[in-house]
């Protein structure tokens, strides 16, 4: 979405608190969706949104007036999501260096796995997709989102997540395989 009123951004840059609040009101929902797609849960998404706005406020003076504010904010949000995922990854390294994917975050996905009842009850595509995404580990989800949604190359995804290209590739492969297993019956029906 285009910035509805570029003068709002200009006023916010000049330190107008009301203008900054207007930006928060206008864009928070959008960056929440983005952060949720990256992190996979509401609490982390809210933390990312908070952090993204703090960074945006701090760096607003450096924002170029010609640029699109939402695009700039999008980038900040993606970076904040990556920071959160990477910090988790370090903790997972310490927890279980042998296999990042088997850390506590993978357990979090378990409670979103579709039970037969949930699958039967849910006919919404978005529910199906969310359930499928819930099966991914944090790293798989981040790698998949950066490649599939953000359109980064696998090499760039690896750089962003601090992973080797081969490991990034395998994270994306695993993610796609899980998505395919979960969603293929739905597609075929």
């Amino acid at each position: 979405m285009e910035e509805r009123d570029p003068s709002v951004v200009a006023r916010a840059r000049d330190g107008d608190r009301d203008a900054f609040r207007a930006l928060v009101d206008l864009h928070s929902r959008y960056i929440y969706s983005l952060a949720h797609r990256m992190t996979g849960n509401a609490q982390d998404a809210e933390d990312v949104v908070q952090e993204a706005w703090l960074k945006a406020h701090k760096q607003l003076a450096r924002f170029e007036a010609r640029a699109d504010f939402r695009t700039w904010l999008h980038r900040i949000t993606v970076n904040c999501s990556i920071d959160l995922i990477r910090s988790r990854r370090h903790r997972e390294d310490a927890h279980d260096p042998a296999d990042l994917e088997q850390g506590p975050l993978s357990e979090r996905g378990a409670d979103t796995q579709p039970t037969p009842e949930r699958v039967a009850a849910s006919v919404q595509i978005s529910d199906r997709v969310q359930q499928a995404l819930g099966l991914l580990t944090a790293l798989e989800r981040a790698a998949f989102t950066l490649r599939h949604v953000e359109g980064m190359s696998i090499e760039e995804v690896g750089e962003q997540l601090g992973m080797k290209t081969s490991a990034t590739k395998h994270s994306i492969f695993r993610a796609v395989r899980k998505m395919r297993t979960a969603l293929e019956p739905f597609v075929e029906s």
Partner: peptide, 27 residues
């Protein structure tokens, strides 16, 4: 088809009043 289905899913929306809560924490 599977990956197109992923694209077609609408994004997860925040709860009502989310913007107000963000500002209350942020300010």
């Amino acid at each position: 088809r599977v990956l197109t289905l992923v694209d077609s899913a609408p994004p997860v929306d925040a709860r009502p009043g989310f913007e107000r809560d963000v500002w209350a924490r942020l300010e």
